[in-house]
Design a protein around this nucleic acid. Structure first.
Lengths: 337, 337
DNA sequence: TTGTAAGCGTTATCAG
DNA sequence: CTGATAACGCTTACAA
């Protein structure tokens, strides 16, 4: 398959490559008749300019690298779905990279994306949510940022200031704990999340302080960490149920954990919300699919992605952008509480 | 930010760019001492070769374009999750494009990916599932295939032979209908899916024939088309419930429709599976998250993606590959039937 | 309005 | 083992 180039088009049209390039990019006036002629030849051969060559000289690729930790958690597809829509309008394409929360995979992808000359980077999960991120991993990102604009979603890195977009998870947690309290609950547990993760800590603090503000005592035995998966919720719920003095309501770190918790409870014949109330976080599509429907906090996932893309785009055009954009969380009261 | 190139490295090391390139690619012997020296300088400047320039001469980018119709249907993230894992091992990166099932968006992306010189293409949804695909859209793909290897997942285009990977949806449907019959159901409905889609037709046929094979009569009024969403399931279920003579079991086109159907039924106080049995298709994570858990058919989504990537890779290396790879569906019997 | 030619940052061929 | 130098396919001054 001999590839066809601007030279081929130029030759056939009896013009120079410069002229072909001009009609391709509409970058300078070209006599209408020759434009027509060139266009016809392009059509005829279905000629497509090589974007690599083009980007090489333009020094921009129109590609945005997106790092996310886990495509099996619907939250992330929702976020980059929003980002993609925005990107499309702005003329960018997303380069999605699933890091599986693995630092070394993150580094590889970061490297790959830089070599591929992406115009910008959106970072989610992994190191930017680590409570104790190794300095070398921080440095890596800092170095990249000197060449490529970066926007972080729901996370950051210590010691430097980055552009970020986030939902107010602290407020979101506060809202939902208060909701449980308003529903009459005095014994509220906290389930799931890795203690090595900043979001877990942030939510935990909000949980603690909201209890205090309501003169409720914080009980260590009602707080159990783990991971962010359904199976974590299932397991940890077992331990709750085994307790003689168990909480009447449980706040889970996210929807997946909440669903796991629900499953275990339900399988024991425990009613939700009558016997125990369960709340999630993120408002993924699972929340409204469940039965009973899950009370949760919406992070406005599409908005998050959209906003990140918008800010990144401005950053690329070297416009001023607020360092931190905070979105308001939305309490979604449904049946599980 | 002046970018640093092989020339800079070469100058600082007192060698030619050729030598730098050699150590970069390990493509020819280089004296150990000079290799060391060059490596050191590369490290020092954190030099990263420009992949665009590289690809321009190599004529390969290591990128695989992936078209899929809908990131909000977990089935697709599952498929490309599997593909990504395989791609990583093979040294490829995926370029994921959400087409929202929109033909023109598909065309745009197809164009984009070609210009970006992807090494191969994986196609899902959209036109390759259309019962009546406009000839021009078929031609588009045919033209591309002459330059770029393509693998289609669960679909094809009329009039040409393409490489494809699919699960046997016919068999899958047969299995689940038979399962319902074996459970004692004689009145089985069929819910959801666009009649303009090949998979819908294929499943419908399997449904019909399996009924016949069991001497059950096919009733038009028990078949309702729509879309592939939860809300479709909710709406169509309403119409079923309004019928005086309604089926005792319902096969839904996919898990989302099934969940919608379940929700409507449950909200009416109808018990599942006692009053009505409901089955889905795809075995997305939703199926096992639900309560009651949804009986469904696994398409082995990750496998699908993995296999497509594997076949595509061989195609790219110009190795022989079976035209059609068929994966076996798995009946997942759970609580909803 | 159009053409010439110099890049863009690599790799690869061919001498040395 | 190493160095010139010509591609790769396109854009963009600079001239004409």
């Amino acid at each position: 398959m001999e590839t066809i180039t601007v030279y081929d088009i130029a030759r056939e049209a009896n013009v120079s490559v410069a002229t072909v390039s001009r009609v391709l990019n509409d970058t300078a006036p070209v006599r209408e008749s020759t434009r027509q002629k060139i266009m016809a030849i392009i059509e005829k051969h279905k000629f497509q300019p090589n974007a690599l060559a083009r980007s090489l000289v333009n020094k921009k690729t129109g590609m945005i690298g997106v790092l996310f930790p886990d495509s099996s958690n619907m939250f992330f597809p929702e976020v980059f779905g929003g980002a993609e829509l925005a990107a499309q309008k702005l003329g960018y394409t997303l380069f999605l990279c699933n890091t599986f929360s693995d630092y070394s995979r993150e580094s590889e992808y970061l490297n790959l994306l830089c070599e591929r000359q992406v115009d910008g980077l959106i970072l989610m999960g992994g190191r930017i949510n680590a409570r104790h991120c190794p300095a070398s991993l921080v440095q890596e990102v800092v170095d990249i940022q000197r060449k490529i604009p970066i926007v972080m979603i729901n996370g950051t890195l210590p010691g430097y200031s980055f552009h970020r977009v986030k939902t107010d998870e602290y407020l979101g947690t506060k809202l939902i704990v208060q909701h449980l309290i308003d529903r009459g609950h005095r014994h509220i547990g906290f389930l799931g999340g890795s203690a090595a993760t900043t979001t877990t800590v942030e939510k935990l603090q909000a949980y603690q302080r909201t209890l205090e503000a309501n003169h409720l005592t914080y009980r260590k035995e009602w707080v159990h960490f783990g991971s962010f998966s359904k199976s974590c919720g299932q397991q940890l719920m077992e331990t709750f149920l085994a307790m003689s003095n168990r909480p009447t309501a449980i706040l889970c770190i996210n929807d997946y954990v909440a669903i796991g918790a629900m499953k275990t409870a339900l399988s024991r014949g425990i009613r939700i919300p009558e016997d125990i109330a369960i709340a999630g976080f993120d408002d993924t599509q699972l929340a409204s699919a469940m039965n009973p429907e899950l009370t949760t906090v919406s992070q406005q996932s599409e908005q998050l992605g959209r906003q990140a893309m918008l800010n990144l785009s401005k950053l690329i055009q070297k416009e001023k952008v607020k360092k931190v954009t905070v979105l308001a969380p939305n309490l979604m009261i449904r049946q599980s509480t």
